[in-house]
């Protein structure tokens, strides 16, 4: 069953600037879909329309079968949102901010439980202005979870988190996914998308330029083999060497290319120092896409 359906979404700002141009994607129930892109690619502009904050200039958006803008009252009780930049009054404590939010919801979970989920229990009585940036992010996540959402929107949820908190947040998100929560994530941490997302789309200048599972997106890009050959050895193929002497091969069939290379080295008794062979990572795919599209 489809939880989020976006068709031909275009968003235009009052100055006429088109931040999103004909974006389409679907997110199934219980799935995590990640929107990636460079800054200014249109991720947040897209998500804000899906959240129902703004009406699309063109195209349609459905969340749990409803128009999130026109039928806000039907959709909002079933979704949780963590904005890229959301705020709380600085003079409220974390607990007070969460209790205020709970008071606006149809069926909230207990405030203590939500703070516990994001490891903020020990900071409950601290004023928001005294929380660290990462703690504020986690408070924002706690509010997004307070309403027991079926669909969760996370806009750069781990920006400003220390590595341990990020790891904990990932665990929490995985647990939510196991419970069947649908998640739409935007992030510029590619390893975050790689670790969590079932499927993803890469945006560039308002358009989706690649979409699929992590391996589908990555498979389109060549693997790399790199090493430093001994001086004076003539390689059986033409490559450019870096000033350090390191050479890098790109190949679409990593296994057989590597086999050929190693067989040749063995036969000729050549030592390949610093040998490194790897499939394309999401990062490489991402950088290649950004470069191509530029």
């Amino acid at each position: 069953m489809t939880a989020i359906e976006v068709r031909g979404l275009t968003r235009r700002y009052s100055g006429g600037f088109e931040a999103v141009r004909g974006v389409s994607f679907e997110v199934e129930r219980g799935e995590m879909f990640a929107l990636l892109g460079t800054n200014g690619a249109g991720k947040t502009s897209t998500v804000e329309v899906v959240e129902g904050l703004s009406r699309p200039a063109e195209g349609t958006v459905r969340v749990l079968g409803h128009d999130p803008f026109a039928e806000r009252a039907q959709v909002r009780p079933r979704m949780g949102v963590m904005l890229q930049e959301g705020g709380f009054p600085p003079d409220l404590t974390a607990f007070e901010a969460a209790r205020m939010w709970a008071g606006t919801l149809t069926s909230p979970r207990p405030v203590d439980e939500a703070l516990e989920m994001v490891d903020l229990t020990h900071r409950a009585t601290v004023r928001v202005k005294q929380l660290s940036g990462g703690e504020r992010r986690r408070l924002d996540l706690a509010l997004a979870l307070l309403g027991k959402p079926e669909v969760l929107f996370l806009d750069e949820p781990t920006t400003g988190l220390d590595p341990e908190s990020r790891r904990n947040t990932w665990e929490l998100i995985r647990a939510l996914l196991r419970e069947g929560v649908t998640v739409l994530l935007t992030t510029h941490y590619l390893e975050e998308a790689q670790a969590l997302a079932d499927r993803l789309a890469i945006m560039h200048r308002g358009r989706i330029v690649a979409q699929g599972t992590v391996s589908e997106v990555v498979d389109a890009y060549p693997s790399r083999i790199s090493f430093v050959p001994p001086a004076g050895v003539t390689l059986p193929f033409v490559v450019d060497a870096e000033p350090s002497g390191r050479v890098t091969l790109r190949t679409n069939s990593l296994q057989s290319s590597l086999h050929e290379l190693l067989a040749w080295a063995h036969l000729n008794n050549v030592e390949l120092s610093g040998l490194d062979a790897r499939s394309a990572s999401l990062e490489e795919a991402f950088l290649a896409i950004a470069e191509e599209a530029a």
Binding site: E51, V81, L83, G87, P89, L105, T106, F153
Partner: peptide, 18 residues
Amino acid sequence: VARREELVLKRLRVGELT
């Protein structure tokens, strides 16, 4: 103005309140 600049209004707007 304070709530707008603190992004509190923006946060409230993605909740259930009209």
